[in-house]
Simulated scan of single mutants.
Amino acid sequence: MKFVPRSEETRQFIIEKTAAIFNKKGYAGTSMSDLTAATNLTKGSIYGNFENKESVALAVFDYNAKKKNKFEDEKLALAPTYKEKLMVYAHIFCQKDALELMEGGCPLLNTGIESDDTHEPLRKKVGEELSAWKKKIQAILSAGIKAKEFVPTVDMEKFALSVIALIEGGIFVARATKNKKNFEVILKTVEDMIENISLVKN
């Protein structure tokens, strides 16, 4: 029998109130008492809207990933050229509004590290988000090549995966070392990559 939540409004409330907790503490580290404390709801109220803790975690990941994507898309929409759109990725993740938005760090990185060997449904969701991100960057590259902004010989898949790896790796290094400067140094490599394929020089 398919599970039906008691209230979509309450369900969304639970997701929003527990989003930062799951992103900071992870699936294994988040307890039911964490959820009841964050929402001021009883265990029964939470389980009336979710089958179990796993279903809360999956819904929260979707919520956090959607917030990240919306933030990126809004910044990309403001960039007038394809080169500037790519440069968005070299700048936005160390900005104050990005740090405030993704409380606890990047949900893809946090969830991916925890779930790769321990929680297949969450790992799968992270993989799908990374694949969608890769396709988004490849689409910018393809459009930029047609607009004669980028060299036509660029390996779009390699470029996109490298940008993602540098960003996610940079976030990891900065958080592990407690040194934001390390992230800025790594993002400079993203800038250099973009300049190297650009036919439009500043």
Score class of each variant (00 low, 15 high):
A98D: 06
E103V: 07
L99H: 13
N110Y: 09
N110K: 15
S115C: 10
L99T: 06
D117H: 03
T118C: 04
G127V: 14
E120W: 00
L109D: 02
T111K: 04
G104M: 10
R123Y: 01
G112A: 04
P121W: 02
T111F: 07
I113T: 04
K96V: 14
C106R: 01
C94A: 14
I113M: 10
D97Y: 04
V88T: 06
L86Y: 09
R123I: 00
P107R: 07
L86I: 15
L101N: 09
I113D: 06
Q95R: 09
D116L: 12
L122D: 06
H91R: 12
R123N: 00
G105H: 09
K124P: 05
P121A: 06
G105A: 10
L86C: 12
A90S: 15
I92N: 06
T118M: 02
E120T: 03
S115R: 05
G127K: 05
K96Y: 14
E120H: 00
E100C: 10
F93S: 03
Y89S: 02
Y89T: 06
G127S: 11
D97M: 05
P121F: 04
G112D: 03
G127Y: 13
I113L: 13
D117W: 01
P121E: 07
A90M: 12
L108N: 00
K124C: 04
I113Y: 10
D116V: 09
K85C: 14
V126N: 00
L130G: 13
D117N: 04
V126C: 08
E114P: 07
G105F: 11
L108Q: 00
E129A: 12
